[in-house]
């Protein structure tokens, strides 16, 4: 257990030690602007977010309605091919694939962002409690976190996902989010512990600043660097794990508002005859996950004081 937890701790200390404030951020930004890896990742992320937000306006058709009324005659098991007005054809139930991918971007963004925010919020509360109060609170919180970290991520998500009788989009989000809580908690605690004896905290304490203010004004803001980096990476992980849940039959069965992982999960049934129905959502997931990972990794590199030389 320690090996994995050590890694998180080391990451926490790493970035927390560099409490150089603005200058670090400025230096990091200067490096990022010239980093092609970051620029590529950022371009993907921006394009994804814009498409996701504008999806309802851009989608040419209703993602929930089959292409009836068009020239399509829906025979049994017949999947509409590409045709005028429907450049990517239809899905296994004859709904416009392009529209579903576009609306899917929105739902995928929702799943990623909500799961990350919930994981982040839970981790912030637990990590701050443990890091700020120490003593038995720290011990209890960290034991719980360690037990959670001793189960491989997807397995934990599957366990949580199967707790609900009727899976829906929010149970998927919750399952993916809870897995990330211990990671954020450990990261935050580590970086707050690293600051406990650093000069700015000692100075604040000597000046008689109240403990609560020290935690919230001095320690917490300085711990946010590694947390933000981790959040960027978790966005990608959340999208991929949501797809895994769908594949195992624990996804959202209501597909009127599609999500890429769900589309990919459902396309498995027809993958032999129509692999393209799986390739489109899978490709989208890969590109977007890649985008967030590129941004996260280059942020980590830029914020790492060791790379400042």
């Amino acid at each position: 257990m320690t090996a994995r937890t050590d890694k998180i701790d080391k990451l926490a200390q790493h970035t927390a030690r560099s409490d150089a404030g603005v200058s670090l951020a400025a230096a990091a930004w200067r490096r990022l602007r010239r980093n092609p890896v970051f620029l590529l990742g950022a371009a993907i992320v921006v394009a994804f977010v814009v498409l996701a937000l504008l999806a309802p306006l851009l989608a040419p058709h209703d993602p929930a309605e089959p292409m009836l009324g068009d020239q399509v005659v829906r025979a049994r098991n017949e999947i509409p091919p590409s045709q005028p007005g429907h450049p990517l054809g239809g899905d296994q139930v004859g709904r416009d694939l392009l529209s579903r991918l576009l609306v899917g971007a929105q739902q995928t963004l929702l799943v990623g962002v909500l799961a990350t925010l919930i994981g982040l919020a839970g981790g912030l509360v637990l990590g701050t409690l443990a890091g700020a109060l120490s003593g038995w609170v720290d011990t209890v919180v960290m034991r719980v976190v360690d037990v959670m970290l001793s189960i491989p991520g997807l397995l934990l998500a599957v366990s949580i996902g199967s707790l609900f009788a009727q899976p829906n989009q929010y149970t998927v989000i919750l399952a993916v989010a809870i897995v990330q809580i211990p990671v954020f908690a450990r990261l935050l605690r580590g970086s707050m512990l690293a600051q406990r004896h650093s000069d700015h905290v000692l100075a604040a304490r000597a000046l008689g600043v109240r403990e609560r203010a020290i935690v919230f004004r001095h320690m917490l803001p300085n711990s946010l660097g590694p947390v933000i980096v981790q959040a960027t990476l978790v966005l990608a992980i959340a999208i991929i794990e949501a797809a895994g849940l769908s594949f195992l039959g624990l996804g959202n069965p209501d597909d009127r508002l599609p999500e890429w992982g769900q589309m990919l999960g459902q396309a498995q049934n027809v993958i032999d005859s129509h692999p393209e129905l799986a390739f489109w959502p899978a490709g989208c997931i890969v590109v977007v996950a890649l985008g967030f990972t590129l941004v996260g990794e280059s942020l980590r590199e830029a914020l790492d004081p060791k790379s400042r030389r």
């Binding site: 797809a243 992982g261 990919l264 498995q268 993958i271 899978a282 890649l290």
Partner: peptide, 17 residues
């Protein structure tokens, strides 16, 4: 980076196909 971004079960499917 792509290796991490591809859902494992999808890669398995492609390899199998």
């Amino acid at each position: 980076l792509i290796g991490v971004a591809v859902p494992v079960f999808f890669l398995a499917f492609v390899l199998k196909q």
